[in-house]
Amino acid sequence: MQPDLSAKSLKVTSLISVGQHPKSGRARRAEQDARAVELGLTLSDDQLEMLHVGSGDKTVMRSYLGMGLPKMTLLKQGDRGDAVPVLCDYLATHAPDILLTGVRAESGEASGMLPFLLAEKLGWPLVSRIAEIGEVNDGVAEVLQALPRGQRRAIKVRLPFVASVDNAAAEPRQSAFGPGQRAGINDMPVAGGDDVVRSGWEESPARKKPKRLKVVKAKTAADRFKAATAKASGGGGKVLKKESPAEQAQAVLDLLIEEGVVR
């Protein structure tokens, strides 16, 4: 779906955050936010505003800017600040037609609440987990929402709206070092309260979640029987060598059915 020309005059704001690499924990361009910027760029390359609230890690901000925007807005706030009131204030005066966010942050609480809070406070509709924005006509946008298994749902939503961008959206373009280094960061200090609730929390490195044991309780004879005969999970895979092709195919099919991919 190609956005039509009228879409080009849309005002789009993409919110960006400081992401985190899942393996190294190093700060980086967040995957979903980068997709939100990518989507914004395809919708309106000259009217896209990139907005961040926080301390504005320089390398991360520059890696977003390397996607080709000449500048961005940084609402400068301490690390413990609450971004929502600050954003609401800002967006009330700089209202875009479309506000794009990620689904969940990559660090900290990662509650996924931010788009919902903004939509609620601004009184705008919100569409979650979108993959694409198509045509925008007469103040109504056609949006494709990502569903599990690569499926999609078509949705129409009235402008202005908030949308959270799913991992199924188009991959973000590569960040180029040179332009990222030269782009401008308009920083505006803002007065926002600290996130007081959070200060009472305790953070620790993630613990391994215990695997649920398959325990058998007295229920039905069949259940016990099944448990007693089940192949212990783990260990090497099963290899069927001598069976006939039909039997082998049946074994494969049984696994596919058990896994729920063939219905």
């Binding site: 996607m67 373009r173 960040s175 180029a176 070092f177 040179g178 332009p179």
Partner: peptide
């Protein structure tokens, strides 16, 4: 790579 951000494939 540095100016266009256009390293192909897995680049």
């Amino acid at each position: 790579t540095l100016e266009k951000g256009d390293t192909p494939n897995k680049g």
